[in-house]
Every structure is written in C-alpha cells, then in structure tokens.
C-alpha cells in the first residue's frame, strides 16, 4: 500500500514533467537561448571572483572571444561552467532536449513526492476536487513567493553569491510552505497570523542581491522570461495537483 501510494505520486509527477517540457519548449527555452547569445559575447572572466564572474558588462568584448564563440560547438551556457568546474557536459551524452526532459521528469517526480508526502503527513488527501488548490499552493511556496526576492533569472544575469541565494531560496520555500499550511488548513486565528508572519519573514530579512546589476542581457528578455517561467510553473503545478488527485481518486482508492 505504501509502495502503491508512492508510485501513484511518481506517475503523477512524470506526467506533469512531460507536460512541463512541452510548455518550456514553447515559452521558456527560446528565451534562454536568446539570452545566451548575449551572454556568449562576454570574455572569459576571473574564476577568483566567484559568484560575479560572468556578469560584468564593463569588460570589452574581445574579437577573438567572439570568433571562438562562433566556431565552438559548445553553447555559452555550458561553456561558462568550465571556468570553475573542470568537468561538465550532459549526462550520458544526451542532447540538450533529452537532458531537459530527463531533468523535468526527475523534478516532476520529486515535487510530486514532496506534495504527496506533505499530504500524507498532515492527513489531508489530494483529490480531483482539491488538486488544483494543492497545486496552486505548491506553486506559491516553491515559485511565486521565493520569486519576490529572487526572480527567475536568465543565463548571464547578475546575481549574488550562489550559496547565499540557495540558502535563502530553500529557507523561503520551507517557511512559505509552513506558512501556507497554517494559513489555509488551520482554523485558529493565532495560526493564521503565525502563517502570515512565516510567509513575510524571509522578505523582511531580504534576499541576497548582486552588487553590480549591469548585464549584457536586455531587460525586456528578463521580464518576458520571468513571466514565462512563473506561468509555465503555475501550469505545471496545477497539472501536477489535478493528476495527483485523479490518480488518488481512481487508482489508489480502488486498491
């Protein structure tokens, strides 16, 4: 029974992951590729300046760098990895698309298991009727609320230290999820106030911000990308919630 419950969550996540890949190919990936053209114009930077290396727009673009970028089969997004990591490349030598598909499947199954895990531990089932709400709460906690401090960024955007951002992001997701639970599923007034405080706390503290916000990537692309990323993830979460609910209603219940 435990295995069946977990399998149901994984299947829902895989379905949502396939859906997400289609949505990304339509709306998000073109913007990433577009931004990489600008990012690719930047010269190889100092690996010592961790966190800021590929984000300075002050350095002149060397013609040699342009020529190399033009000749090289490696896309800029992958190329800049090699500045601070000696190994890179896509797992199993897959194409970029299949890598993205694989990552979406894994991420989808992961988020689906997390959602199911929360549902099981707090004892509120995900059903077809409330699946969209579950999904919307997942999106709020994992994407919308953290995005208030750290908007989805394109390759080549300026950003603060990676460790600080990941810590802030992970803590914000956890606090937002706990806050949403208190706000949505607890009746007491105290719990609702505590939920709001939990949700607001990371924003009152403030997300780590880059010192230098200049970038080669046009701001319009960034704006389009942020909206596209939030819209596709909202669709992903709603599909995930509804499919999870459907599977729970039909399959797990029947067993």
């Amino acid at each position: 029974m435990i295995v069946k419950t977990l399998l149901a969550a994984i299947v829902a996540g895989l379905i949502a992951g396939v859906f997400m890949t289609a949505a990304q190919e339509l709306r998000v990936t073109p913007l990433i590729l577009h931004a990489e053209e600008f990012e690719g114009g930047e010269p190889a930077a100092e690996p010592a300046a961790a966190g800021h290396e590929e984000h300075s727009s002050l350095n002149a673009v060397s013609p040699l760098g342009k020529l190399l970028a033009f000749v090289s089969p490696i896309t800029p997004a992958y190329a800049h990895e090699h500045e601070h990591e000696e190994e890179g490349g896509i797992l199993f030598g897959m194409s970029r698309f299949s890598g993205t598909l694989l990552a979406n499947l894994v991420t989808g199954a992961g988020f689906s298991l997390l959602l199911a895990g929360i549902s099981l531990t707090i004892g509120h089932r995900i059903t077809l009727a409330n699946g969209a709400l579950w999904g919307a709460c997942g999106w709020l906690a994992v994407h919308m609320l953290p995005a208030l401090g750290l908007p989805p960024e394109l390759p080549g955007f300026p950003a603060a230290d990676l460790g600080e951002r990941q810590t802030w992001w992970a803590l914000t997701v956890l606090l937002s999820a706990a806050g949403l639970y208190l706000l949505a599923l607890r009746g007491e007034l105290v719990a609702k106030v505590a939920g709001l405080v939990l949700i607001a706390a990371p924003h009152a503290y403030g997300a780590p911000q880059p010192l230098d916000i200049s970038s080669n990537v046009p701001a319009v692309l960034g704006a389009e990308f942020a909206v596209a990323a939030l819209a596709t993830t909202l669709a992903f979460w709603i599909v995930l919630g509804v499919v999870s609910g459907f599977i729970n209603d039909r399959v797990v219940k029947a067993g």
């Binding site: 890598g99 989805p152 960024e153």
Partner: peptide
C-alpha cells in the same frame, strides 16, 4: 557540473538559484 548542464534549462525555468 554534469547535473547542472543536463538540467540547465530546467533549472532556469523553475527559477532554481
């Protein structure tokens, strides 16, 4: 690096830092 490059577009579009 390998996980990053494989999941590159996914990471960006999910807004992972």
């Amino acid at each position: 690096a390998v996980l990053h490059d494989t999941a590159h577009d996914t990471r960006h579009s999910y807004g992972f830092p």
